[in-house]
Design a protein around this nucleic acid. Structure first.
Length: 198
DNA sequence: TCATTAAAGTTAT
DNA sequence: ATAACTTTAATGA
């Protein structure tokens, strides 16, 4: 969790509820709130001209959404969409910035949060340029696994659908499936009724 | 080699 | 039930 729940509520944050596929914000809007997930999952995405979806980030409980836009005078370059029922704490930009000014510890946590997302972006930016689909998927899965507690081989279940992995890497689903099968053949991962163990 | 299209099977809502 | 996801196969850049 980036900011303590109580602190946020004391600062004036309220809980908003969202249903699956509901937009939290959309591309082009200006950022007026700080959002932090209490429960549920959220994706940040874009669509290209042909309608193909690209997923920027997948977020879960404790993560904040689009916080970097609160520090620059720009509109959102992507959408934030609830993947399931979500409870999200929201605090106005003004109150959020005031909270940071008077609380260095929270400010530090915010830096950590933004840096973590930047780290992911840096890894993926390089990844997207690499040609090989297996390398792209390996990089993505290594990153996901780095959050898992257990380090044993084939114990971490990738919490993504193949469709999501395709949208995260810019590959098409069919290529993801073929690449994963190849990796399974090469003993890089295990599969258990569709679930990927890495 | 990978994307695209199509078609069919499977899972989740 | 219906939509979303998975898989296989054929074709083309």
């Amino acid at each position: 969790m980036v900011i303590n729940h109580k602190i946020l509520e004391n600062a004036g944050a309220i809980i908003k509820n969202y249903i699956a596929s509901e937009n939290i914000f959309t591309e082009g809007e200006s950022a007026n709130y700080y959002f932090q997930i209490v429960s549920g999952n959220v994706k940040m995405n874009n669509y290209d001209e042909s309608g193909k979806e690209s997923i920027q980030h997948l977020l879960e409980k404790g993560d904040c959404i689009g916080e970097s836009l609160l520090f620059v005078d720009r509109s959102y370059p992507m959408n934030a969409v609830a993947l399931n029922s979500c409870e999200i704490l929201s605090l106005t930009k003004e109150k959020f910035l005031a909270l940071l000014k008077e609380n260095p510890k929270i400010c530090f946590e915010m830096n950590k949060s933004i840096s973590e997302k930047l780290y992911y972006k840096q890894i993926m930016a390089q990844n997207m340029c690499t040609q090989s689909p297996t390398v792209k998927l390996k990089t993505l899965m290594d990153y996901m696994k780095s959050f898992g507690c257990v380090e044993k081989r084939f114990t971490f279940q990738i919490p993504l659908t193949r469709q999501q992995m395709a949208n995260l890497t810019g590959l098409c689903v069919e290529t993801v499936i073929r690449a994963l099968k190849k990796m399974e053949r090469d003993g890089k991962l295990l599969t258990e009724n569709g679930k990927i163990l890495y």
